[in-house]
Nucleic acid binder design. Structure first.
Lengths: 115, 115
DNA sequence: TAATATATATCGACAATCTATATAAGGAGG
DNA sequence: CCTCCTTATATAGATTGTCGATATATATTA
């Protein structure tokens, strides 16, 4: 199914933070990992990811460091900061409230019709 | 809780269509009804709703008609068209896939880590 | 050596929401 | 009677988030 890209709005940052909660990763890896974990539902574009990472770093939610791999190639890894972890927690709760509310409306709303 | 407004992106139209699935409504009523059905999570602004309604009408997903109420005031009611109903159905399925995918990622993704 | 995959980055376009503002009618309170 | 608040519809401008296109460079494979 073709995902409506606008649905992602606002939740992309949360997903990135979640990916980094547990292990450090570099940008390109995140794109693949997100696709994998979401069963190929999310295909984050590079043009979306990199500006987002820079923004999160500026907000001190992430820290980056360069790491030389076996193949002489330098990759830029990102690490979740304590502040980022806190932010992730908040956003996750927000998401729960939000998706529950949507679910509520889609359920028919009949439950609230005559209280 | 202050809802991140961007989370709504893309799903507002679906919610409006859902509200009209069952009964015709006028704009102002939709704002109140959506807040009610979502347990005060969604507070749609007039500046968001009306352009959206006009857009949905232009796309033939909605039809409008004016109705004189008891109080001499004329209200503009909206009705869901068959095309709109079909659209609602599609968007609802899309939402299910999307929210499931988010849930999957937030779950930790550990389940997919070593398959 | 040429094509493809990996890897990071920026810019302009576009879509969706918000705030602010305009307009106007009805009801409540002073 | 007049003012304020709520109801009700509407539009313009600002902001934000995502995408497509493009640029650059290295590594792998054919």
């Amino acid at each position: 199914m073709t995902m409506d890209k606008t649905l992602l709005a606002g939740s992309t940052a949360m997903l990135i933070l979640k990916l980094l909660d547990g292990q450090d990763m570099y940008g390109y890896q995140m794109i693949a990992e997100l696709a994998k974990r979401s069963d190929d539902t999310f295909h984050l574009k590079a043009g979306t990811l990199y500006p987002l990472l820079h923004g999160l770093e500026k907000k001190k939610l992430l820290e980056s460091y360069e790491k030389q791999t076996d193949s002489a190639r330098i990759r830029k890894y990102y690490r979740l900061t304590p502040k980022g972890k806190k932010h992730l927690h908040e956003k996750t709760e927000e998401w729960e409230v939000f998706s529950h509310a949507i679910h509520q409306v889609l359920k028919g709303g009949l439950c609230c019709e005559h209280i």
